[in-house]
């Protein structure tokens, strides 16, 4: 994968892209930080990390980066979006409303579980062990968004209570939590398998 079909890009405008880089390196994948649209050339996959979605949106203004991201994702580039990354991709964002790339058919509410004092490590319910490749899953939630509505083409792989927290739509894998902060997370394993299968 890393040799023939290119590195995995990490959107590196702001956020925990370094944690993603460590998680991917542990699985033998090479990565490239993406700050401009030119950095998107020749990627085998793409990570939209956690961080502050408002900051990332501000940093995309005045460049063609957002348009290029949408084109690459629409073209079938395998994507892993975590936390703020899900907010960036969502069809609609609430609390407060903000613009988004609109390629993932979900509605999300920001900071819906509360502030940092409500951040927690939670045991999740795996809805589709076959697709995930694991029976158990830990979720590290940090000022996390909540998915309140899911479109028809979106599969729910795991939930926290009734809330969908791990979703798949085509080549997009979306987690409202942080698999990159759980050593050996099956979510990162699944993403790497998807990238390798696509390459």
């Amino acid at each position: 994968m890393s040799g023939d079909s290119g590195p995995i890009g990490l959107l590196a405008l702001q956020g925990d892209y370094a944690a993603h880089a460590r998680a991917l390196a542990a699985r033998g994948a090479t990565t490239r930080e993406v700050r401009t649209s030119g950095d998107l050339d020749g990627l085998a996959g793409l990570v939209l990390p956690g961080g502050e979605s408002t900051t990332m949106l501000t940093l995309m203004e005045g460049s063609d980066l957002a348009a290029r991201l949408v084109a690459e994702i629409a073209g079938g580039l395998p994507v892993l979006a975590t936390c703020a990354g899900v907010i960036l991709l969502a069809r609609e964002v609430r609390l407060p409303p903000q613009r988004s790339l609109g390629v993932l058919d979900v509605v999300v509410e920001r900071n819906a579980y509360g502030r940092q004092l409500d951040s927690a490590v939670v045991a999740l319910t795996v809805r589709d062990p076959g697709a995930l490749g694991a029976e158990a899953l830990e979720g590290v939630f940090i000022r996390a968004p909540r998915v309140t509505s899911v479109g028809d083409g979106v599969a729910v792989l795991a939930t926290r209570g009734d809330d969908p927290v791990l979703l798949r739509q085509g080549m997009i894998l979306a987690a409202t939590f942080h698999p990159e902060l759980t050593p050996g997370s099956p979510v990162v394993d699944l993403f790497v398998r998807q990238v390798r299968a696509a390459g």
Binding site: G15, G51, E52
Partner: peptide, 17 residues
């Protein structure tokens, strides 16, 4: 510990900002 991991986790999210 889960408590320390979510504390450092927020610090991770603020990187590059």
């Amino acid at each position: 510990s889960p408590e320390f991991r979510v504390k450092v986790g927020l610090a991770e999210m603020l990187k590059g900002g």
